[in-house]
Structures are given as structure tokens and as C-alpha cells.
């Protein structure tokens, strides 16, 4: 009995240690962001020496952060909407054994996971579709994520067919079955899908850098990168003076960028874990 007791304590300590490792980088970031700018940073501290919100004030004062939030929120909401609709309408038929040409369509879909035309043709496409410098350039190309599609499809397969069959006998068509029978049973996978789409669009930066030119339409990640990486562009700066942002301002800007995820995440995580399981295990 005694040995087991020791093992429990050890486990407990180990788990706390793992949690600390997981949380510490975020804590350190937060601490830097609220430390007064004139404090010497090259001393190890667990808590800030003097608390000051001046870094946040400075980061927000630049005026870009607010605009970035707005653009990112628009992008995320549009992206989630499109992503949910197109993924579900594609995943549901693919989950049906009797779908005509199913193997071909699956192949058509999966192929896109491995081959793409490259960045130049993509850019030309966006330009010729007239999407350049609009939010649509950021959401339309990502409307279907094949990896997520497959997981949703696997989830749909796991729903007992008998439920749908009885609905069909009642005269429902496939659209009605999907909206009335299947979707209400799929809340957890929908929550998962929503979270994935939200996180993807919130975090995306590369496409915005390529497809958005107006400074009024910049997304949050682009602005954050500019603040954080400003120091590294020293050489690109050529004959002009270098621009280096102090660590505190960098930290405050990163905090503002990841803040919403960290705040919202604990509340919704219990939904998506269920969905993740259902989609990944069955199949």
C-alpha cells in the first residue's frame, strides 16, 4: 500500500510539473508585457518587479491593433461560416456508401492534400478572380480543409444508419435528413470544426501578407509579426536606422493577439474534445 501511495504523490508532482512547463511560457510572456519598461530584464524573476500597463497603452496607441482585431474578426466569422457549410455538405454525401462515383470523388478530394499549383499561380488566380485585397481572398481558398473534412465524414459514418432510414421512409429528402437528423446529433463535431476554423483563421498570416495590400485591411497577425520581428529586419533596412521594439511592447502585442484564444478556450474545450474523439477513433 505504501508504495502505491508514493507513486500517487510522484504522479501528482509530475503532472503539476508538466502543467507548469505548459503554462510558464505564457506566464513569462504575460509578465514581460506588464513589467515597467525601465526594469532590467536580464535578471530571473517569477513575478514582475514593477507592474505597468504602459506597454499595452503603447501597443494599442499605434492604432493598428484595433483595426487588426476588426479585420481578423470579420475574416474569422466569414471563414467559419463558409467552412462549416461547405465541409458539412461535402462530408455528408461522402459518408454514404451508396454515393455514386464515391471512390473518384474521394480521390478528387484527397489529391488536393498533396498537390498544389504553387504560390505564383495561386496569386494570379486570386488577382484574376478579382479577390485581391479583399477578405474573400483569405476565406474562399480555405473553405474546405480536406483533413477536417475526412474527420467529419468519419463522424457521420458512425451515426447509425437506421435513424436516417426511418426518416427517409417518412419522406424526407437528403437535405432534410442532414438538417433534421444528422446535424442535431453532431453538435460536438460541429463545435470541433468551428473551433478549428476559428483557430485557423485567427492564426493565419501568410495569405494576408500576400493578398492584402491596403493598410486598412491588415489582419492582427500581420501587425503582430511586424512589431515582434521589427528588430530582425535590421539588415533589410539598408542605409537607414534600425527599428527595434522593446521586449515589453513585443510581449504586450503577442498577448493581445493570443489573449482571445486563451480566454475563450477553457470554456469551449469540453465540446470539442468529444468531437475530436468521435471523428478520430471511428472510421
Amino acid at each position: 500500500m505504501k508504495r502505491i501511495h508514493f507513486f500517487d504523490i510522484f504522479l501528482f508532482a509530475l503532472m503539476i510539473f508538466i502543467c507548469l512547463i505548459m503554462v510558464y511560457p505564457f506566464w513569462n510572456l504575460f509578465m514581460n508585457s506588464i513589467t515597467a519598461p525601465d526594469v532590467n530584464m536580464s535578471v530571473l524573476r517569477l513575478f514582475p518587479e514593477r507592474v505597468s500597463l504602459s506597454s499595452y497603452v503603447k501597443a494599442i496607441e499605434s492604432g493598428d491593433i484595433g483595426r487588426g482585431y476588426l479585420n481578423t474578426i470579420v475574416r474569422t466569422v466569414l471563414g467559419i461560416g463558409l467552412n462549416l457549410i461547405l465541409t458539412v455538405t461535402l462530408a455528408y454525401p461522402l459518408s454514404k456508401k451508396h454515393l455514386p462515383n464515391k471512390a473518384f470523388i474521394t480521390g478528387f478530394v484527397v489529391f488536393t492534400m498533396y498537390f498544389n499549383g504553387g504560390v505564383v499561380p495561386n496569386y494570379l488566380l486570386i488577382r484574376s478572380l478579382g479577390l485581391y485585397d479583399t477578405v474573400w481572398a483569405l476565406v474562399l481558398p480555405h473553405a474546405v480543409n480536406v483533413f477536417h473534412l475526412i474527420i467529419v465524414r468519419n463522424f457521420f459514418i458512425s451515426i447509425p444508419y437506421s435513424l436516417e432510414e426511418s426518416a427517409m421512409i417518412d419522406g424526407c429528402n437528403e437535405f432534410q435528413i442532414l438538417t433534421r437528423i444528422v446535424l442535431p446529433l453532431s453538435k460536438s463535431i460541429m463545435a470541433t470544426l468551428l473551433l478549428w476554423a476559428a483557430v485557423f483563421h485567427w492564426n493565419a498570416w501568410f495569405d494576408a501578407m500576400i493578398y492584402i495590400k491596403s493598410s486598412e485591411k491588415q489582419v492582427l497577425q500581420t501587425i503582430m509579426r511586424r512589431v515582434v520581428l521589427g528588430s530582425m529586419s535590421g539588415s533589410a533596412n539598408g542605409a537607414f536606422e534600425e527599428l527595434v521594439n522593446p521586449e515589453n511592447i513585443k510581449a504586450a502585442t503577442i498577448m493581445l493577439t493570443v489573449g482571445p484564444i486563451i480566454v475563450v478556450y477553457p470554456f469551449i474545450q469540453r465540446y470539442f474534445i468529444k468531437g475530436q474523439l468521435a471523428g478520430a477513433i471511428k472510421g
Binding site: 505564383v120 496569386y123 488577382r127 500576400i210 511586424r226 520581428l229 521589427g230 530582425m232 529586419s233
Partner: peptide, 16 residues
């Protein structure tokens, strides 16, 4: 053009 990725982004447009 984002200064942190200036070369790549300019080259992309040149290539296009």
C-alpha cells in the same frame, strides 16, 4: 510590402 518578408513578397509579384 511587409518588410519582414520583403524579398519573397516582391519576388512573388515580379514572378506574376
Amino acid at each position: 510590402i511587409e518588410p519582414t518578408r520583403f524579398e519573397e513578397l516582391l519576388n512573388l509579384r515580379l514572378a506574376s
